[in-house]
């Protein structure tokens, strides 16, 4: 069938450049990127958006979004975003960070950005391991989960417990909107997109720090097929990292999207 304007059901969002991504087949980074690009496009804010890329698999995020972008040191994206947003308060500033970046080395920066109520939006990809360096244990690695640095499975006695970032950040008064969603099926992807929209709306209205945690896959490092890894998220990750709204401030609760 020839694609025409009448039956066009899928196309590259305006928020994307023409660059094909470097992500592994089956990885949900591509989905997360697309949701962010669609939301920025739908809100008409691409022209005034500045993204902050992390260190991790999404280090090259700046190649894919057709907005201004900077590339932060490992974990420091919320600090860089703070610097940008404070001097350009009318712009839209977001960070895109993985779990090693945000929940380990960048714990100080993310916590204090939330505590200060920085008007930034954080897209937090939780795939339970350090993807870019080849699948090491992350703060979000599940108990018993095998990684290249927990070869016998994460032993909580010696390697500690996973950190539930959304729950933790939700305790901070500066946080306006903190939710966890998942990317393991179409229904959850739609819910994730809605949450991303609400997070950016929170920022646009100056209602404080917003974060959307997205449970994601890492088929390559998990040693699974894409389908198996989606199942792993649904069966194993969602039970440890329950989906839900952890912080919706009064102001955000009144938003209609």
């Amino acid at each position: 069938m020839v694609t025409t304007a009448n039956n066009l059901v899928y196309e590259r969002p305006e928020g994307f450049t023409d660059t094909p991504t470097h992500y592994c087949p089956g990885c949900t980074h591509g989905v997360a990127h697309r949701l962010v690009a669609e939301v920025l496009e739908e809100m008409g804010v691409l022209e005034k958006t500045i993204g902050v890329a992390p260190v991790g698999c999404a280090v090259f995020a700046y190649n894919y979004f057709d907005t201004d972008f900077v590339e932060a040191p490992h974990g420091r994206a919320p600090a860089m975003a703070t610097g940008i947003k404070r001097v350009l308060p009318d712009r839209v500033v977001f960070t895109y960070q993985g779990d090693g970046d945000l929940a380990s080395i960048g714990m100080g920066e993310i916590t204090h950005a939330a505590a200060r109520g920085e008007n930034i939006t954080v897209i937090f990809i939780n795939n339970a391991n350090y993807g870019m360096t080849g699948g090491q244990m992350a703060p979000t690695t599940l108990p018993g989960m095998k990684t290249t640095s927990s070869p016998n499975g994460r032993d909580v006695e010696t390697q500690g417990y996973p950190i539930r970032m959304s729950e933790m950040l939700a305790t901070l008064d500066g946080a306006g909107y903190v939710v966890r969603r998942s990317l393991h099926d179409p229904k959850n992807i739609r819910l994730a997109k809605k949450a991303i929209r609400l997070a950016f709306e929170t920022q646009l209205r100056g209602l404080g720090f917003s974060l959307v945690e997205l449970l994601s896959t890492c088929p390559t490092n998990w040693g699974m097929t894409p389908v198996e890894s989606l199942k792993f998220v649904e069966d194993k990750m969602v039970s440890y990292f329950p989906l839900g709204d952890y912080k919706i401030s009064q102001g955000v609760a009144q938003l209609k999207v």
């Binding site: 902050v52 900077v70 932060a72 040191p73 420091r76 600090a79 860089m80 975003a81 703070t82 610097g83 940008i84 947003k85 404070r86 001097v87 100080g108 920066e109 204090h112």
Partner: peptide, 10 residues
């Protein structure tokens, strides 16, 4: 660390 990266952003 936070301070210098805020400087970096600005």
């Amino acid at each position: 660390l936070g301070a210098i990266n805020m400087v970096y952003g600005a």
